[in-house]
């Protein structure tokens, strides 16, 4: 891997494009850019516009100024819980699932037997669809019929999914269950490409395995860290399917994307209001993107 490493010496690449080159570039860059602008950014900007209106999706669109935002911040009870839950989600995945995935990757990477089996098993939750996750939650956590209460027993069974102070933690566990395998696979791949010579050199210097990991291995994993970081942010802010499968994201399981769905997708036609929620979500996302951008540029300069 060492030999395949790119060396950026900072010299500008040759820029002699023929007409054919320009045609290829024009078509193959133009098409995805067009798709992205027409189907992603166009609708996004349209949503921003709609957030200043009231519209039920059928009749006329009426301007509403900042009313949607005012109502959202003051008179929409699920809003602040949803914001809280999204941030909690981010913290949970970032501080628990991601490190746990890294730990599993490190253990498997040390060359244990049956690594294929472990990898497959731990990755399996990633491929599950919404219906399965919802059912599994019911299967295990249902108060009356679930497996967990059957194992615990007791006279007053715990209401894992119905207690609004408790269910968010159960759902976060389920989210970790899915996220860990994802992160593990990414790190596993990253670890396999770490130059073993580095570790050996560290070992010769008398560093313990742990020291070697934190001083030598982890820094070389920076690109993986960036990918994992971005994926974790995406998954946390877009989180939707688990809570939706459990109870449609109500009663303690509010998330921003669920509120957007409730107002925009369903029979409820509060498109302007739902768009306002989406804009808030967009701003939060952009905050993270800018942070990422800054970090990335800094990394670029270091190279």
């Amino acid at each position: 891997m060492v030999t395949t490493r790119a060396r950026h010496a900072g010299r500008p690449g040759p820029r002699r494009h023929t007409r054919r080159d320009l045609a290829v570039l024009g078509v193959l860059l133009g098409l995805p850019i067009l798709l992205d602008l027409a189907l992603i950014w166009g609708p996004t900007l349209a949503s921003v516009g709609l957030s200043f209106t009231t519209w039920d999706g059928v009749g006329d669109i009426k301007g509403a100024g900042l009313d949607n935002y005012r109502n959202l911040f003051t008179d929409y009870p699920p809003f602040w819980p949803a914001v809280r839950h999204n941030l909690l989600w981010l913290a949970f995945l970032g501080l628990l699932a991601a490190p746990f995935g890294l730990l599993l990757a490190v253990l498997i990477d040390r060359g244990v037997r049956f690594s294929r089996f472990y990898q497959s098993t731990l990755y399996l939750p990633v491929v599950l669809s919404l219906a399965v996750v919802g059912f599994i939650a019911q299967l295990i956590l249902s108060r009356d019929q679930g497996a967990l209460n059957a194992v615990i027993g007791g006279k007053d069974p715990t209401d894992w999914l119905g207690d609004p102070g408790l269910n968010i933690w159960m759902v976060l566990l389920a989210a970790c269950w899915r996220h860990t395998g994802y992160v593990m696979i990414l790190y596993l791949a990253g670890l396999k490409s770490v130059d073993p010579g580095l570790k050996e050199a560290a070992a010769l210097d008398g560093a313990s395995e742990r020291q070697a990991f934190f001083r030598v291995v982890l820094p070389t994993l920076r690109p993986v860290n960036v990918i994992v970081g971005v994926i974790t942010v995406i998954e946390s802010l877009r989180a939707f399917d688990i809570v939706y499968a459990v109870n449609k994201g109500r009663n303690g399981l509010e998330l921003l994307s669920v509120l957007v769905t409730d107002n925009i997708i369903g029979e409820a036609g509060r498109i302007g209001f739902g768009s306002a929620i989406a804009v808030v979500l967009l701003l939060v996302s952009l905050g993270f993107i800018v942070t990422y951008l800054v970090q990335e540029l800094r990394g670029e300069q270091q190279r």
Partner: peptide, 15 residues
């Protein structure tokens, strides 16, 4: 491109 990926699907539905 990367930022476009951060939006939840539901936002784009109506437009």
């Amino acid at each position: 491109f990367t930022a476009g990926n951060l939006l939840p699907q539901q936002v784009l539905v109506t437009p």
